[in-house]
């Protein structure tokens, strides 16, 4: 117990929370912007795994971080584009298309990994690159704060900057207004001349690009290789974070909460507490959070009516 407390109340623990939160935050923000535009879907898992894979392959064959990043984005955007084309143009059910694309991405990445490396599990035989660690000039010298906040992967900082960017795009730009209008009432939007399908499509692509960054972080930051199904539900957790949060800042807080549960499960595992009970924490927390949040929304609605 003493060990546990020591492990939790430390700067290293805060550092690890931020580290595991990063992909959840990217996924959460991606889901948030999609939800605002009325195109929330469940293909983030597939987008992220494809981006993770393409990033590794791109950087390994070009030995350029930029090419890695761009190919990761391209991979994620391809899945987003397919989702957009099928759900918006061909009017396919978005959830079912999402399931299909997740299956496609999970199988397709392993398929390509095998074709490229003759390995179905890991990409360790590819000499891929990782994004650099950034030390923040003044903060890194402050004792506890420095350990916790400085020395993260550059994409971690990008993810937190994205919270601000998503807020600005949604609430301070004309296009953000259009996204929200389409999300709230597409008939009204189309009646004043907004091209609904186009706005939805662009929203999907923006959301896909953000999620792709999360995928790229997984294989080129969090780890330095691609592993099959390495997203492991993080895309789904991002949707849950968005569901709990609802706005950029609160989505970040929700993502940090899931990050805390994840980091806690990592710590507890090293202390011989049955791993399964700890691994299940984030998912149970999400379920409780969903019930509490949706429940409070429902009460509000009823109160308003009466």
């Amino acid at each position: 117990m003493d060990n546990l407390l020591k492990a939790i109340f430390s700067a290293e623990f805060v550092y690890s929370i931020i580290r595991v939160t990063t992909p959840l935050l990217f996924a959460g923000l991606a889901a948030l912007i999609a939800n605002k535009g009325g195109v929330l879907h469940i293909a983030y898992e597939g987008i992220m795994v494809t981006a993770a894979f393409c990033g590794v392959v791109g950087s390994a064959y070009s030995q350029s971080l930029l090419v890695g990043l761009l190919s990761g984005l391209a991979g994620g955007l391809l899945i987003s584009f397919l989702l957009g084309y099928f759900s918006l143009i061909l009017r396919a059910d978005r959830t079912l298309t999402g399931i299909a694309l997740n299956t496609f991405a999970s199988g397709g990445t392993v398929f390509m990994l095998y074709v490229l490396t003759n390995d179905k599990g890991l990409s360790t035989s590819l000499n891929s690159l990782t994004f650099p660690i950034v030390n923040i000039p003044i903060i890194k010298n402050i004792p506890i704060l420095g350990t916790a906040l400085s020395g993260h992967n550059v994409l971690t900082y990008v993810s937190f900057i994205c919270v601000f960017l998503v807020f600005v795009v949604l609430y301070k730009t004309p296009f953000g207004l259009r996204i929200r209008t389409v999300g709230e009432n597409e008939d009204a939007a189309s009646s004043v001349g907004v091209k609904v399908i186009r706005v939805k499509f662009i929203t999907l692509l923006i959301s896909g690009a953000i999620a792709s960054l999360g995928g790229v972080y997984m294989s080129m930051g969090y780890l330095s290789w691609f592993a099959r199904d390495m997203i492991a539900g993080r895309g789904f957790m991002g949707i849950a974070a968005q569901n709990l949060g609802g706005e950029p800042l609160s989505t970040m807080i929700a993502a940090l909460f899931f990050g805390l549960a994840n980091a806690l499960s990592n710590v507890l595992q090293t202390l011989n507490i049955p791993a399964e009970f700890v691994q299940v924490i984030p998912y149970v927390a999400t379920l409780i959070g969903l019930a509490a949040y949706s429940g409070s929304m429902k009460r509000n609605k009823i109160n308003k009516k009466s």
Binding site: L82, F86, I89, L90, R91, A92, D93, L96, T97, I99, A100, L101, T103, F104, S106, G107, G108, V110, F111, Y114, V115, K120
Partner: peptide, 22 residues
């Protein structure tokens, strides 16, 4: 050819079957 080809086939079928406008 790895067995994961099946996932690709499955995904394509679902997507076209649920595509109303196809």
């Amino acid at each position: 050819i790895p067995i994961e080809l099946v996932s690709i086939i499955q995904a394509i079928i679902i997507m076209f079957v649920v595509a109303e406008r196809f």
